[in-house]
């Protein structure tokens, strides 16, 4: 019974990773850059929710909505100020800038919210589900996280497949020049991508800190890196890949924690990244990099 409960917890954690991984993978696909500040947007989202709920005492739903709006604006602002001027710069310059933005956000949070770890109050008020005569307990957070993750995936896939903006995104990610010739505004498309990724980061922060309530300026870094591993695992640039990679990574982490060693759980996650890069560098659903002449 405990195995099943570990797997369910793994899927729940993995759902959060996959929502974060979507931000990485979409930005990579469309702007061809790794936004290492993505994890820190989650941390900022956590502090926004914490401030509104615990300091101002408002309703959790309002807190989450405000966090989504502010994180979306933050994502667009980061892109506009830090990345847009580097559109034609070498990719290494953009990567270093992303790391710089990450440190900036962490230290900004340290300055504003202080160094002490905050205890996040769950935004999810759903009772735990007891199954099999009380032998199997599923947390209320899990009951919300998994369906929400599925809804987000379906909505996002539909948006990308069916809407004009979504088609423009696919076009830009595949062939930027050809997309420009069709009349697609690349800067606007990249800004929309950052907006979507950052809004999802805010949702992820609400879910993640509700299950793992310790919140500090460094809290976004580790889940951010793990979601990046998930994106690479699934095949960076692929939306279903982010989902599969995230969930597998969550299960591996929780099972590793339960059966191997809780200290080594993170090491196991990164070992998986190394294995994936060695065996299938393009990830599970990664596209073959193949030029047809």
């Amino acid at each position: 019974m405990s195995f099943i409960s570990y797997v369910i917890r793994g899927i729940s954690l993995g759902s959060v990773y996959s929502i974060i991984a979507l931000g990485y993978t979409m930005v990579y696909g469309i702007a061809k850059m790794l936004n290492f500040a993505h994890g820190d947007v989650i941390m900022i989202g956590g502090f926004i929710i914490f401030t509104i709920m615990s300091t101002m005492g408002l309703n959790p739903l309002i807190a989450v909505i405000v966090a989504i709006i502010l994180c979306t604006l933050l994502g667009i602002t980061i892109e506009r100020i830090a990345y847009k001027p580097l559109r034609k710069a070498p990719s290494l310059a953009v990567l270093i800038t992303a790391i710089g933005v990450s440190y900036f956000l962490q230290n900004f949070a340290l300055l504003i919210f202080g160094a002490d770890t905050k205890s996040f109050t769950s935004v999810i008020n759903v009772p735990d589900l007891k199954l099999a005569g009380g032998n199997l307990t599923i947390a209320g957070e899990t009951l919300v996280t998994i369906p929400l993750c599925i809804i987000i995936m379906i909505a996002l896939t539909t948006f990308v497949k069916k809407s004009k903006t979504g088609r423009g995104m696919v076009a830009v990610s595949e062939d930027r020049d050809a997309a420009i010739l069709m009349g697609v505004n690349v800067n606007r498309t990249i800004a929309i991508t950052f907006a979507i990724g950052s809004a999802l980061a805010a949702v992820a922060s609400a879910l993640m800190f509700s299950s793992y309530p310790s919140l500090s300026s460094a809290s976004g870094a580790m889940p951010g890196i793990k979601a990046f591993v998930a994106a690479v695992f699934g095949g960076i640039g692929s939306i279903p890949g982010a989902m599969i990679g995230g969930i597998l990574l969550g299960i591996i982490e929780i099972l590793g924690r339960a059966y191997i060693s809780s200290q080594l759980a993170d090491a196991i996650v990164f070992f998986v990244l190394i294995l994936v890069l060695l065996i299938k560098p393009t990830g599970i659903l990664g596209k073959q990099i193949q030029e047809k002449v």
């Binding site: 088609r167 696919v170 076009a171 595949e174 062939d175 020049d177 050809a178 010739l181 047809k292 002449v293």
Partner: peptide, 12 residues
């Protein structure tokens, strides 16, 4: 503009 090498969107 019909670009050299066609440049159709292969994933669409």
């Amino acid at each position: 503009h019909v670009p050299e090498g066609r440049h159709v969107f292969s994933q669409l």
